[in-house]
Amino acid sequence: MSTTVLICDDSSFARKQVKRALPPGWQVDISFAGNGREALSAIEAGKGNILFLDLTMPEMDGFETLEQIKSRDLPTLVIVISGDIQPEAMARVKKLGALDFIKKPVDAKRLEQVLTDFGLYSG
């Protein structure tokens, strides 16, 4: 069974940009979510072994989503991809259990590096 990847962002434009930045040839099943609530259901359904998570979203933002993942002990590895590049935002998401932080607009090389660093992808 291949790894499942979930891209969560309220903007379809942003979701598309993240999908495009994934390493070509990475054998994964990709799903999408428009806010944190949808992401949590998708993870519970096994669709998010790896979660790319935006922070600024309606309904449930990225910070709250991370809190929920933590308190419910959901099985997912979270990489935050956000335009909120304040040092405080980065510190908060790491504290809430995110593996790493990638700033928007997402850069494919940086994304590949993060995936490689955490042993999630080997080119």
Binding site: S11, T56, G83, D84, I85, P87, E88, K104, P105
Partner: peptide
Amino acid sequence: DAYQEIANIAMGRAADLLAR
């Protein structure tokens, strides 16, 4: 949606400077 996302990124840069 695209304008909003582009604005979101530009806004984040500005907010970072203000926060600092």
